[in-house]
């Protein structure tokens, strides 16, 4: 073993132990970064072998690309999305709290107006209902896979759910349009194009997200906990309900919020079955429109830089802010989950 290799090994051994400062994730994150930076500099000083260096450059490069694309995308959507307010002088209040979507109306007739309240409510209603139905279903599936029938569940149910995750959303939409919509029209009532059709399609679409994250967090629990519960005389169901599910709570919540985020951002499949009617639904059988659907419908036909197009970008910015919010919620949940341990 050459001298440099030995030095490398020593440093790598060091890197296993990174002191954590509990309770301050941001500070401990910075602290980690600092340690890593110090190590990079040390490595450089020791003149690393070629493949070490290459690996370092490649991974750093990939990380840089990821960071740069995120920053540029956020910057682009923000500048585009804010121009409806800054350049065209639309008030944020009118944008968020008005249901009048009349971007083509002439100024002399009181236009143009770009209120997105109906779309926002549509998005919230459809994705919330989907999560309300999908979450219990998914958690039950996860319990089945992780606890009730680990063998069978892992061999049959998990691949089945992975296939669900792999089906393209246009296929979900088309199945919904061809099967679900006529079924609702003939058996439940209304046009078929409805909130109901939209959230049923979404329920199936977000199922894999919630199931896989919940399964992972259930599996990650120490086996001793279950054994301790059994030793105390609890039945299997009691162990699941009183010990395992509460212990995996933060993981399950993360899965549910991710599912909600996915439901909120889904465009195509929902657009095909909800009927896209620009008003607030009063019944579950009413057609509805979501933010994503309203964007895709007009994007291609409005000239860049026009008020109409800018308003669509503002809706995109709103979606981006919603997803930032969801990520914050997930961070918060995992922070609390970590503290509980």
């Amino acid at each position: 073993m050459s001298e440099t290799q030995a030095a490398t090994l020593r440093i790598n051994k060091e890197s296993i132990y990174i002191p954590e400062r509990a309770g301050h994730p941001v500070r401990s994150f910075l602290y980690r970064e600092m340690l890593i930076m110090r190590k990079i500099l040390l490595h450089r000083a020791l003149k690393l072998s070629g493949s070490e260096k290459l690996g370092r450059i490649l991974t750093t490069g990939a990380a840089a690309i990821a960071i740069i694309s995120t920053i540029t995308i956020v910057f682009f959507i923000s500048t585009k999305g804010l121009s409806a307010f800054l350049v065209d002088g639309i008030s944020i209040k009118d944008f968020l709290f008005s249901t009048h979507w009349l971007p083509d109306r002439l100024p002399e007739d009181g236009g143009p107006q770009v209120g997105v309240l109906a779309f926002l409510i549509g998005s919230i209603v459809v994705s919330m209902l989907a999560v309300l139905l999908s979450a219990p279903l998914s958690v039950a599936c996860a319990v089945f896979i992780a606890e009730i029938a680990p063998n069978w569940g892992q061999r049959v149910l998990q691949p089945a759910i992975e296939i669900l995750a792999g089906i393209p959303s246009v296929v979900y939409g088309y199945v919904g349009l061809s099967v679900l919509v006529p079924f609702i029209r003939n058996n439940v009532g209304g046009l078929g194009f409805s909130v109901l059709a939209g959230f049923l399609v979404l329920t199936v679409m977000i199922l894999p997200t919630i199931v896989s994250i919940s399964t992972d967090s259930l599996r990650a629990l120490p086996g001793e906990w279950k054994e301790a519960a059994y030793a105390l005389g609890s039945t299997r169901w009691q162990a699941i309900r009183l010990v395992l599910l509460p212990a995996a709570r933060s993981g399950i919540m993360t899965g549910i919020v991710l599912g909600l985020a996915r439901a909120f951002g889904e465009a195509l499949a929902v657009q095909m079955v909800i009927g896209n009617t620009r008003k607030i639904p009063t019944s579950i059988l009413d057609p509805v429109i979501t933010l994503t659907s309203a964007i895709t419908m007009d994007m291609g036909n409005t000239p860049m830089g026009s008020l109409w197009n800018n308003a669509l970008w503002s809706m995109g910015l709103l979606l981006l802010m919603m997803s930032c919010f969801f990520i914050l919620v997930i961070r918060f949940i995992s922070l609390k989950g970590g503290a509980a341990r």
Binding site: F193, N276, R278
Partner: peptide, 16 residues
């Protein structure tokens, strides 16, 4: 109801 494509409009008018 609003639909993005004429093909979908045709399908909906035919079936609804």
């Amino acid at each position: 109801i609003e639909e993005d494509s004429s093909g979908t409009v045709r399908k909906i008018v035919k079936e609804t």
